[in-house]
Computed example of a mutant assay.
Amino acid sequence: MLRAGVPRGAATAAALRTFTKSGIAPYKCPREIVFHTALPRTPTGKLQRFRLRPGALERGGPALE
């Protein structure tokens, strides 16, 4: 999640990618950066990672809110 006031867009994604490449091997950097307003969580507060995986909607998984 981004801090309040940080724009969500291609420039921010490029800056994140550059920062990541400076700290780890380039092949480990994310190929795609997607900004969500909130992460999907269970009523107990656990992160629902299966909702974040690519193709979850195509396989009939629940949609992000």
Rank of each mutant, 00 (worst) to 15 (best):
L2Y: 09
L2D: 08
L2N: 03
L2I: 13
L2P: 07
R3K: 14
A4I: 12
A4T: 13
A4F: 13
G5K: 04
V6L: 10
P7G: 03
P7Y: 06
R8Y: 01
G9M: 11
G9P: 03
G9T: 05
G9I: 03
A10V: 10
A10L: 07
A10I: 11
A10P: 12
A11C: 03
A11M: 09
A11K: 12
T12R: 00
T12I: 06
T12H: 05
A13R: 05
A13V: 01
A13Q: 07
A13L: 06
A14H: 03
A15K: 11
A15E: 10
A15T: 09
A15N: 03
A15M: 08
L16F: 04
R17Q: 09
T18L: 13
T18P: 05
T18M: 09
F19Q: 14
F19L: 14
T20F: 15
T20I: 15
K21P: 00
K21T: 13
S22C: 07
G23W: 15
G23C: 14
G23N: 13
G23T: 14
I24G: 09
I24M: 15
I24N: 03
I24T: 03
A25G: 14
A25N: 15
A25T: 11
P26I: 02
P26A: 13
P26M: 06
P26V: 11
P26K: 13
Y27R: 13
Y27S: 05
K28E: 08
K28D: 09
K28A: 09
C29H: 05
C29Y: 01
R31F: 10
E32H: 07
E32L: 08
V34H: 06
V34G: 02
V34P: 00
F35A: 06
H36M: 05
H36S: 04
H36F: 10
A38M: 08
A38D: 13
A38F: 02
L39P: 01
P40F: 00
P40E: 02
P40G: 04
P40T: 06
R41S: 02
R41I: 07
R41K: 15
T44N: 14
T44M: 11
T44G: 08
T44A: 14
T44I: 08
L47D: 02
L47M: 09
L47Y: 09
Q48K: 04
Q48T: 01
R49H: 05
R49T: 04
R49Q: 02
R49Y: 01
F50V: 10
F50N: 09
F50C: 08
F50H: 14
R51H: 04
R51A: 01
R51F: 00
R51S: 00
R53P: 00
P54W: 03
P54Q: 07
P54I: 07
G55H: 07
G55Y: 03
G55M: 09
G55F: 04
A56S: 06
L57T: 07
L57R: 05
L57N: 02
E58D: 11
E58Q: 12
R59C: 03
G60L: 10
G60H: 12
G61I: 05
G61A: 08
G61W: 01
P62E: 14
P62V: 11
P62R: 14
P62A: 15
P62S: 14
P62L: 14
A63N: 01
L64D: 02
L64C: 01
L64E: 05
